[in-house]
């Protein structure tokens, strides 16, 4: 089997580098676009929720950004991951290597922007008087689990998208629903009791909740929350690999 001689980490690196270069080469503001989007969202939503529907939440812009940044990463990585196999049809048809590398490279490419936005978030935290504490050690764990979770989704949905082209629109709609159904501009405590169960089942809501505990309340996230998040994330990854592995054999005939 000639695929085994391929250096898939090197392929992964090259695909991520390609995405990164291509995305910024044709933009004069380059990497600042990664910062503009959350800043604009933060400005607009802060206006709405401090002036139109005043909220009681303290330091609302920071509170908002802690929800917005992980959510943005999730929705962008999931959506672009879903399109990844079809977007790379030429590769799938003509070059042999493990196809799993494609959706994973797209998710990891989005991690770069995620990291840039996190730096912005940290700066804003300090500006609003926040300080580093030992619970921040949890942050890489929480974000790592989110990345694992999205990798699983991207694998599963990119494979399905090859056979059912409407999948990408399903993902788009789901992202729209999730924007409202994840506690981004409201807090977990404000969720009506009979709806709490939907939030408990949603890993993105769990990520946001954990980040708020760490960054705003300076405590470690609930262990029950972290255990659930770990199980769901690795479950998603496993499911993604298994489904992708079953479906990838006929990719070249369908893309």
């Amino acid at each position: 089997m000639s695929t085994t001689s391929h250096d898939h980490l090197y392929i992964l690196y090259n695909l991520i580098a390609k995405d990164f270069k291509v995305r910024y080469r044709n933009m004069s503001l380059g990497i600042f676009w990664s910062l503009m989007n959350p800043l604009i969202m933060m400005a607009v939503l802060s206006y709405v929720f401090t002036r139109v529907f005043p909220t009681k939440i303290h330091n609302f812009p920071v509170f908002l950004l802690i929800g917005l940044v992980p959510f943005n990463f999730f929705s962008l990585a999931w959506a672009s991951g879903t399109n990844s196999i079809l977007d790379n049809a030429a590769l799938v048809k003509k070059v042999r290597f493990h196809r799993e590398v494609i959706p994973i490279s797209v998710v990891l490419g989005n991690v770069i922007h995620f990291a840039i936005q996190l730096i912005l978030l940290m700066l804003l935290m300090f500006w609003f008087g926040g300080a580093i504490n030992r619970h921040w050690f949890w942050l890489p764990v929480v974000f790592g689990l989110e990345i694992v979770f999205v990798c699983g989704l991207a694998l599963a949905f990119s494979a399905l998208d090859v056979y059912y082209r409407d999948i990408r629109y399903v993902v788009e709609s789901a992202n729209l629903v999730l924007f409202w159904m994840v506690p981004i501009f409201y807090s977990h405590d404000q969720v009506p009791k009979d709806f709490v169960v939907f939030y408990e089942l949603n890993p993105v809501a769990a990520v946001v909740q954990a980040c708020r505990m760490i960054l705003l309340e300076a405590r470690s996230p609930l262990h029950s929350l972290m255990i659930k998040l770990t199980l769901v994330s690795f479950g998603s990854l496993l499911f993604g690999f298994v489904l992708f592995g079953r479906l990838k054999k006929r990719f070249a005939d369908y893309v």
């Binding site: 000639s2 250096d7 090197y10 580098a17 390609k18 270069k21 080469r25 590769l91």
Partner: peptide, 18 residues
């Protein structure tokens, strides 16, 4: 959008170079 040189790296990785 990548240069010839950058494409050599990408293409080589895909073909099986390390």
């Amino acid at each position: 959008d990548l240069t010839g040189r950058e494409n050599i790296h990408l293409n080589a990785a895909l073909l099986g170079y390390n």
